[in-house]
Design a protein around this nucleic acid. Structure first.
Ligand SMILES: [Zn+2]
Ligand SMILES: [Zn+2]
Ligand SMILES: [Zn+2]
Ligand SMILES: [Zn+2]
Lengths: 163, 163
DNA sequence: ATGCAGATTGATACAAGATAACATTCAGCA
DNA sequence: TGCTGAATGTTATCTTGTATCAATCTGCAT
């Protein structure tokens, strides 16, 4: 467990995003192989579209992007790919936006905690285990057994506060 | 600040729900009056429908309920009432369910933290200021200015674990 | 090689959730 | 009484997500 709770997001403008994507792709390959599942071309394409930036993407926007390279894709095409990627822990859904974003640390099971900049749209993914522990403790106090967490914080990133 | 972080939810089966509702209604009247806004019959009806249980209600279910007493209500009718009630802090939206629930403590501004039982559907609303502080601290560490929180925890309530 | 079973994708239709735009009615007040 | 802005009615449309069944592909046993 790292002391740095930030998993991805709000990187400097000059960061090597190609490297981000390459890493994410190889991690995805690895995760799928380990799970005995197939990282098919379609799933890979959707995954790459999601990683085209550190901003969440909406399902129908993915669909429109897909339409550029595939013949008349239909909604189930993209939703099935998204379901698969979420199952595999490669992608998170942001419930407050109805949008999807690539996970910055697949392999380790987690729900993710997100900081969403309402101005530029960039999302940071955090993992603060103390936060999760605190939630678990609160739940346990009233006999509630946690299975899933949705933690999405909206606001302004540093850049967008000044400009 | 109370030491008890639970605001509502998971009450005993015999709890006096009529009292819950009466309290919620008088609080709502008070809040609206204080804000100089009108708690109209329509808004009141929607509010009462939301308080018919401690479970979240979907907009189109509200619409169906409304249809029993009103003449062919349309979606904007219920969405406008919901918008008003949310603005006034009387109702929360649960993003992970696309559903709405009455706030257990209006008057005091907060976003709410929710425990959602995936079996019985009952929702508890908590307010753990330490949790909010921790989130704020994490955000501040990376220069993020928080304006809104969505915290929704899914799992099993005590009753539903045993039965 | 051939054929089969399960997984994946294609295709059509529809359900569910939410909003835009404009018309009408209502409450409060000059 | 008549005006004004708030509230509600009405119609249409947009966004988001599923159900269902057909076609294709993959890996494997024969
Ligand atoms: Zn990057
Ligand atoms: Zn993640
Ligand atoms: Zn009650
Ligand atoms: Zn509340």
């Amino acid at each position: 467990m790292s002391d740095n709770i930030i998993i991805q997001g709000f990187e400097s403008a000059e960061h090597d995003h190609r490297h981000c994507v390459a890493d994410a792709l190889s991690e995805a390959e690895r995760v799928c192989t380990q799970r005995g599942e197939r990282f098919t071309p379609l799933r890979r394409t959707v995954f790459e579209l999601l990683w085209s930036s550190h901003k969440p993407v909406k399902a129908y926007d993915l669909l429109a992007q897909l339409a550029l390279t595939h013949d008349r894709p239909a909604p189930p095409t993209v939703y099935r790919a998204l379901d698969f990627l979420q199952e595999a822990g490669l992608v998170h859904k942001l419930e407050s936006l109805n949008a999807y974003i690539g996970c910055g640390e697949p392999g380790r099971r987690h729900q993710g905690q997100f900081l969403i900049c309402e101005r530029c749209g960039v999302v940071a993914e955090l993992d603060d285990e103390a936060l999760t522990s605190r939630i678990d403790a609160n739940a346990r106090k009233i006999g509630f057994k946690v299975s899933d967490e949705t933690i999405e914080i909206t606001g302004l990133c540093r850049q967008c506060q000044v400009s």
